[in-house]
Amino acid sequence: MLKYSEGESFFHKLDPRTKLFFFISLSVLSLLSTSIIYLSSVFAFTLIVFLANRLSFQKIKSFSKFFIILSIFVVILQGFFYPLGKTILSPIPITLEGLAFGFAISLRLFTILLSLSVLMLTTKQKYLLEALGNFIPKDFALSLTTAFRFIPIIEEEARTIIISQEARGLKRRGKMKLTAYFPIIVPLFAKALTRAKNLAISVESRGFGRKRTKYDLKMKPKDWLVVAGTLAFGLCLLFFHPV
């Protein structure tokens, strides 16, 4: 789960808007090309920032696991089905271009994931809410910043539903049938929808809707430094590796 973790790193002290800019620019950069060299540099840059702020991979473990499995699938599927693939690695009908493309897409995925982690792990929810509120309606800002908070809760709910269904004789193990998951997925969705509705009631009941307290976000020199650094990186990259 991507939630704020207490710390004293350089990024912790930045203005949330700077970090938002960092996240958006790296995501956009990673979407511009599918070249492996290009994407590797974007990924490397993000990784350096991530590590330089002494953020631990432990914090994004559960997320990453899912994305690693996803990217293995992507690589294999692209290997088989990439339409522009030429070099066939016999004896299996997998193309080198396909594998490369799959790998590139995974790199892109991880770049976005890492830059998002940098933003979320170093920014308190209320500051993020205010920063986002400058660009998008604050209702959207609130739903964006709260979405992450509900991941562990939904996990917990899924576990409870599974236990309660199995306690009443639902067989899940053995033959894996998709239909076996319906009794779990349907209530899970129903619960998520109820939760969303309750959330709306809860925030309005506590006065969310009018002007909120300002947290006096201020762009300091180091913020501009990060903005400039990110821009410089992006421009250099595009200069040496035109898309």
Binding site: K126, R149, R206, G207, F208, R210, T213
Partner: peptide, 16 residues
């Protein structure tokens, strides 16, 4: 819905 107890308690005040 907030992540920490302190944020939860201050949410209403921020809204005011």
């Amino acid at each position: 819905f907030s992540i920490t107890v302190e944020d939860e308690i201050s949410f209403g005040l921020e809204n005011m």
